[in-house]
Every structure is written in structure tokens, then in C-alpha cells.
């Protein structure tokens, strides 16, 4: 799964990983793992992240060809 979280963070007032983590009540390590593509967030967390950036989950995350069954 491809993520655009980092781009959104920088586009929106250069929000730090720690600030974003605080907004969605997770650890900074979780934000790092999501940005690196090491961890796929739950639907709830994805929706919370999308809400922070006032966007949709589809804008934040997208499936890669290898993810499509």
C-alpha cells in the first residue's frame, strides 16, 4: 500500500510526526511505520488521519498493483 502521509504533512503547515501522532492518539513510531509502508493502519485510524488533513482515505492511501488480488 502506498501512502502520501508525508506529503500531506508537509503540505499542511509542515506538521511534525509527533504532532500528527498526538492528533490521532497513536505513538510517533506508528506514524513513522505508516509513512515507511511498514504498517497498514486500521480503518478507524485511516479515517482519523484523513480527517486531520481534511481529505479522504483514498487521497492518503492507495493500493499498489501487488496489493490487488
Amino acid at each position: 500500500m502506498k501512502t502520501h502521509l508525508r506529503r500531506f504533512r508537509f503540505d499542511r503547515n509542515e506538521l511534525s510526526q509527533a504532532q500528527l501522532a498526538e492528533r490521532v492518539a497513536v505513538s510517533r513510531q506508528t506514524i513513522i511505520a505508516i509513512e515507511r509502508g511498514d504498517y497498514s493502519p486500521s480503518v478507524k485510524l485511516a479515517l482519523q488521519l484523513a480527517r486531520v488533513f481534511d481529505t479522504t482515505v483514498e487521497q492518503l492511501f492507495e493500493l499498489e498493483s501487488s496489493d490487488v488480488g
Binding site: 497513536v26 505513538s27 513510531q29 506508528t30 504498517y39
Partner: peptide, 10 residues
């Protein structure tokens, strides 16, 4: 539940 990070739990 609010004190537990979902990735850590996973």
C-alpha cells in the same frame, strides 16, 4: 483501550 497504540498491540 485509549492508552494502547494499535500498531504496538498488533
Amino acid at each position: 483501550k485509549k492508552l494502547i497504540d494499535e500498531r504496538q498491540l498488533h
